[in-house]
């Protein structure tokens, strides 16, 4: 119901913005964008973006809503950074069609302000930023690994004993902007940090805890899950 309404409104917005139909009706792109906006981006951030009148760009690949000038150059930059870890490179291609060079900044801003307001219109609950499109299995494995490695010795993590206080409280980690004081809160960065904290963030107190890449990815999925907290 909600998804259908969003698709209709996005279609309308796309028409208003004057994107050529051959490009605009690329359904995967539209659905990706709307999915990203409605289900992954936080309502709070979207609302702030709309209220401040900023150009609002969404990266469909990683689902991170970011405040930045929505010029095609900036967008391309975002995509490049996403593309590095992308498992679906073709999405970048589709994404490009949403931001044709012909589109001027003003229209883009209006379009995204409108899109950003959509979740508010639909009485949607406050959905946290969940940059991790994790499988329940990965989350389950991650919870187990976090317990096995004793992450709770330093961190408060719901469902993990003990609730240490040496490191930061990791409750609602999915809603944080940055992790470890400096890294963007994305799965790839979190995984890399977990695997070797001192190498990723020099000077961090978190030691390199022996773990496999799979364990690190699973723990990142577990920490990023939005519904556990």
């Amino acid at each position: 119901m909600l998804a259908a309404a969003i698709v209709v409104i996005v279609e309308l917005a796309v028409q208003i913005a004057g994107i050529q139909s051959g490009q605009a009706r690329d359904e995967p792109a539209v659905s990706l964008a709307s999915q990203s906006m409605a289900c992954r981006a936080s309502v709070r951030r979207s609302a702030i973006a709309a209220a401040e009148g900023n150009h609002f760009a969404a990266c469909a690949e990683c689902g991170i809503a970011a405040l930045r000038p929505a010029s095609s150059e900036a967008c391309g930059q975002e995509e490049r950074s996403c593309g590095e870890k992308s498992t679906h490179p073709q999405r970048n291609h589709r994404q490009n069609r949403l931001f044709p060079k012909a589109m001027d900044d003003h229209r883009t801003g209006a379009l995204f302000a409108l899109m950003a307001m959509l979740p508010l219109l639909s009485a949607c609950e406050d959905v946290p930023v969940a940059p991790h499109d994790a499988q329940p299995e990965a989350i389950k494995r991650g919870r187990l690994a976090a317990g096995q490695l004793g992450c709770g010795a330093c961190h408060k993590i719901p469902g993990i004993w003990p609730e240490g206080a040496t490191g930061p409280d990791l409750t609602n980690l999915a809603e944080r902007g940055v992790i470890a004081g400096s890294l963007p809160n994305r799965p790839a960065e979190l995984t890399a940090y977990l695997l070797d904290p001192p190498a990723t963030v020099p000077g961090t107190a978190m030691p390199k805890v022996p773990m496999t890449r799979q364990q690190a990815e699973d723990i990142a999925a577990f920490l990023h899950q939005p519904d556990a907290h």
Binding site: L149, G150, P162, E163, A165, T166
Partner: peptide
């Protein structure tokens, strides 16, 4: 184990135990 059978023993839990064992136990 670390802390008498309560934590797995690795660099991470060792650091956490040294810094703040009173919260853990």
């Amino acid at each position: 184990t670390l802390g008498a059978g309560i934590l797995p023993n690795n660099r991470g839990t060792l650091a956490g135990w040294i810094a703040d064992s009173q919260t853990i136990k």
